[in-house]
């Protein structure tokens, strides 16, 4: 076991994937010499060469489009999109090509491409650097969409994503990059939790609190804060598409209450899908409607306002309280 930041855990995971399979490549803006703006790929170009860790031209569609071509040739590209708000120039390649190629080819083509995207707010950044675009991608059949929340999970999840024969959108909580956690870098990958399974982070009996990415830690802190009055079960979804409804349903049928928290706008967000599914699957067990806590139906605000936009511990607890008011 070693104590690593989430950023370093990803770096170690990438290193291990590069070592394990010569077809694995890393490509993106500033990922080589600089090591990425968040240093996630630090040192990898030096150790694996410019052919495997590629500093690309500044063109997001180009990164994904050429990664598709490389995957058609048998490579396993891991692409970095520098910030959440910069993924949109690549959405045509992601949604029209990457997601659909297996279906289009009746299973003859696999595109094992991973797209790493630092996501979420809370770092006082300028516009386009704090967004949570996951719902755009969970709506596209053919993509796996996952989010890591801590160092240990990030380390294995990135390797599982690279090993997947499906394209994976891999969200990294940028304000948690420097959070440290114990990571077992000697554990075999087979022992890691599968990529499409949710994880109960904190067991509880009164209410199920679902989240992913940067808010998982906030949810745990919220649960601890009220531990004397309420027993809150916190689940890290990990996989946003497909959703692990088995784990979610099992929990909600036990607790009878469910709150979903994410940074993305509530309107048409992932929480809406979860609420509809939980309502259908757990209707006779519910003591209250499934409630959502998240960003507002505004564009991401200037950073001096983001503390009001982002769900924090108090707003999450407000959501939990509301679940007990029915």
């Amino acid at each position: 076991m070693s104590k690593l930041t989430l950023s370093k855990a990803l770096n170690e995971g990438l290193r291990r994937a590069l070592e394990a399979d010569p077809k694995v490549m890393i490509m993106g803006e500033d990922v080589g010499k600089l090591g990425g703006v968040f240093r996630v790929t630090d040192g990898l170009q030096k150790d694996f060469g410019e052919h495997r860790v590629v500093d690309t031209p500044l063109a997001e569609s180009g990164i994904i489009g050429t990664a598709i071509g490389l995957a058609l040739r048998g490579y396993r590209p891991v692409c970095e999109i520098q910030f959440d708000g910069f993924v949109f120039p690549a959405t045509d390649q992601i949604i029209s090509q990457l997601a659909k190629m297996r279906y289009r080819s009746r299973g003859k083509i696999s595109l094992p491409v991973v797209i790493r995207i630092p996501c979420g707010g809370g770092i006082g950044a300028v516009e386009h650097h704090s967004e949570s675009p996951e719902a755009y991608f969970t709506h596209a059949a053919g993509l796996r969409v996952v989010a890591c929340a801590d160092a240990a999970d990030a380390y294995s999840m990135i390797q599982l994503a690279i090993a997947s024969d499906d394209p994976v959108i891999f969200f990294e909580p940028k304000r948690r990059y420097w959070d440290k956690g114990e990571v077992d870098t000697t554990a075999p990958l087979d022992s890691a939790q599968p990529l499409d399974r949710a994880r109960v982070v904190l067991a509880g009996t009164d209410v199920t609190l679902l989240s992913y990415g940067p808010l998982v830690r906030t949810c745990v802190e919220a649960a601890m804060a009220v531990a004397r009055e309420r027993s809150v079960e916190v689940i890290d979804l990990r996989s946003l598409s497909p959703l692990d409804m088995a784990t979610i349903g099992e929990s909600v049928r036990r607790t009878g209450r469910c709150v979903v928290a994410h940074e993305a706008p509530v309107y048409s967000g992932l929480g809406a899908e979860i609420a509809a599914r939980v309502t259908e699957a757990c209707f006779y067990h519910l003591e209250a409607p499934v409630l959502r806590v998240g960003g507002f139906a505004t564009p991401y605000p200037p950073s001096r306002l983001e503390e009001h936009y982002l769900p924090d511990l108090d707003r999450i607890l407000d959501g939990v309280d509301r679940a007990f008011s029915y």
């Binding site: 489009g65 050429t66 071509g69 058609l72 040739r73 490579y75 045509d92 029209s96 090509q97 289009r104």
Partner: peptide, 23 residues
Amino acid sequence: HLYTIVIGDQTLHATGYAMGIQR
């Protein structure tokens, strides 16, 4: 390769494939 209907998308796929040939 399969037909590509979205105009121009395949030029990037071809370029990536060619980068694979280089590798």
